[in-house]
Design a protein around this nucleic acid. Structure first.
Length: 554
RNA sequence: GGGCGAUUAGCUCAGUUGGAUAGAGCGCUGGUCUCCGGAACCAGAGGCCGUGGGUUCAAGUCCCACAUCGCCUACCA
């Protein structure tokens, strides 16, 4: 419909030019939008005002010319009005909008999908928590944002690859091994003094007793130098398995867990550094090797090889990102904690230095989650190992409520997550609001079938009977779905989907409370069932993208 | 000190990239069940969009300055 109106406008502009009413002009693009106020018609365009500065005429005058030149051959328009400073308001003929439901009926589960991405390959890296401890609540938000973003991109036609970068190299890993060894010795009667940087969470203690059960005390007699790597591998392996399991339960499935160690094993970092040296992107100063990131907009150059000869985390990360592009991804999306925002210019600089477009790397920042219980903050401290794990949250409030709640804000704004609220089965909990609408429609369809009303086929439904303002609003809401998905994909803002769903559910709840879907009037019942099932299709499709279940009964 | 981000209803936040009378949830006040699901709905009160300038037909949205708050500012990862 929107496209059709844009075409009509394009033609009318051309006609205006041909007849000499307008100088030869070409607006960059013609905007047609659904109106918020029924008094403004169904669709509106601001072209006349956009053209005003070029044409050097009063916008209302231009609008007048355009509306006179509109040739509505298919007869979809009731009328076109000029309003306000120069808006063109389109009123669609009665029943014209409802015909848009045909697409929903025809596409079913595919409705909302598009080919915006044209099959282009996108890699999306998220969570990527160090395997030094279980995932906690902070990781959960990044996991949902990444997973849903990936689903959205898939829906609009991208080929998406989901990846988790395992930070399994570096000092922290040694500290992990050391921590496990200390706990292991402690179990055998030793005393544990934890140096700086060690992990003292209970999960280490559990790993130690499992190891003791498996191997007995034989490690006690081996040399510490040989022991640490062994303990490190054991701990990292076990923790990573736990992470994968937690993510699976949370509904996040990855195509690849990419190991940093693997990167070193195949000399990815070494190759990268040699290449940077050849291209003169690095220089030596004070025994360290520096990357000229300032050449690409960073505020200072960054060290890639330390004085002691070890590459920095940044060096490995550059090598990893190059690896991504070498695998043929056109766009690479990283999801980071917002506290890493200062890292963006340097990574962007590196990507550009490697010869890729600046836009090829996109970063979504995810702000902190304030975990609350009954409005009061839950104390957490990573260092002491006291934190609420992702697993605990999912066990307590459920996957659906957790996932939905994490998408109730823009990802880059702070989010309060209240455990008690997320468990409540009430209107305070938005996930139920949407799921309830879904269950309610299922129930209506069930009862209708019992009473002998089947949902008619499109050809057999008289949708022109859908004339109530609420019905028109519902139809408009339904037709917005593909645009919402595309907008979320374009801006990388998954929260748009939850806001849209709340709106649509509200429209339906309101409609339901005011009107009977099933009545004595067979034709009207058929039309309303058709409309209701269209809403159901959207709810189902959208919830699937969110990774939230769509229950038929609650 | 420098950089980034924020500031919208009592609270928590949206605001579709510059459009018409700024929205939602919670909270508050008062209503709706002879009924297809009350986990729902309806009505009402509540606003100097941090402050001051600028850009234009049009600014919550773009530019500049200031104020307040948060984050970053490692040869850690």
């Amino acid at each position: 419909m929107k496209q059709a109106l844009v075409k009509l406008l394009e033609k009318s502009i051309q006609a205006g030019i041909d007849k000499g009413f307008l100088p030869p002009v070409a607006p960059s693009h013609i905007e047609v939008e659904l109106t918020k106020d029924p008094g403004h018609g169904d669709y509106a365009s601001n072209v006349a005002m956009i053209l005003a500065s070029q044409v050097r005429k009063n916008p209302r005058e231009i609008a007048k010319i355009l509306s006179a030149e509109i040739e509505d051959r298919d007869g979809v328009l009731e009328k076109v009005e000029i309003a306000g400073p120069g808006f063109l308001n389109f009123f669609i003929r009665e029943g014209g909008l409802a015909r848009l439901l045909e697409t929903v009926d025809r596409q079913g589960e595919q409705y909302g999908s598009s080919n915006l991405g044209q099959g282009r390959r996108v890699q999306i890296e998220f969570v990527s928590a160090n395997p030094t401890g279980p995932l906690h609540i902070g990781h959960a938000r990044g996991a949902v944002v990444g997973d849903v973003m990936a689903n959205i991109l898939e829906a609009v036609g991208y080929r998406v690859f989901r990846e988790y970068y395992i930070n399994d190299a570096g000092n922290q890993m040694n500290n992990l091994g050391k921590s496990l060894l200390l706990r292991y010795r402690e179990l055998l009667g030793g005393t544990a003094e934890f140096p700086e940087g060690c992990y003292r969470g209970d999960y280490i203690r559990e790993l130690a007793s499992e190891l003791l059960k498996r191997d007995g005390d034989r490690h006690l007699h081996e040399k510490p130098e040989e022991l640490i790597p062994l303990f490190t591998d054991y701990a990292a392996g076990a923790i990573l398995e736990g992470i994968k399991e937690d993510l699976l339960i949370f509904g996040c499935v990855f195509d690849l867990y990419f190991s940093e160690r693997e990167l070193y094993r195949e000399d990815g970092v070494g190759k990268l550094l040699r290449e940077l040296e050849e291209k003169d992107f690095v220089y030596r100063e004070g025994e360290a090797l520096w990357f000229r990131t300032t050449a690409f907009g960073d505020e200072k150059d960054r060290v890639v090889v330390r004085q002691n000869g070890d590459p920095t985390y940044f060096a490995a990360d550059i090598a990893y990102h190059r690896n991504k592009f070498q695998r043929g991804f056109e766009t690479v999306i990283d999801i980071w904690g917002a506290d890493h925002h200062g890292y963006i210019p340097r990574m962007s600089a590196a990507v550009q230095a490697l010869g890729y477009e600046k836009d090829a790397l996109k970063v979504i920042l995810v702000q902190l989650v304030n975990l609350l219980r009954e409005g009061k903050p839950v104390a957490m401290s990573t260092r002491s190992g006291e934190f609420v794990t992702l697993r605990e949250v999912v066990d307590e409030v459920g996957k659906d409520a957790a996932r939905y709640n994490f998408l109730m804000r823009r990802s880059d704004s702070h989010l309060d997550f209240d455990l008690e609220l997320a468990k409540k089965q009430s209107s305070e909990n938005p996930v139920y609001y949407v799921q309830y609408a879904h269950a309610r429609i299922c129930s209506i369809l069930r009862i209708a079938a019992e009473r002998g009303h089947a949902v008619p086929a499109f050809a057999g439904a008289d949708l022109s009977l859908l004339q109530l303002p609420e019905e028109i609003e519902l139809v408009k809401g339904i037709t917005r779905f593909p645009e919402v998905l595309e907008g979320a994909a374009r801006t990388l803002e998954p929260h748009r989907l939850t806001f849209y769903l709340n709106d649509l559910a509200a429209l339906f709840h309101s409609y339901y409370n005011k009107n009977k879907v099933i009545s004595e009037d067979g034709a009207l019942t058929g039309a309303r069932l058709f409309l209701s099932r269209s809403v159901l299709t959207i709810l189902k499709n959208a919830l699937k993208i969110l990774g939230v279940s769509a229950p038929e009964k609650m």
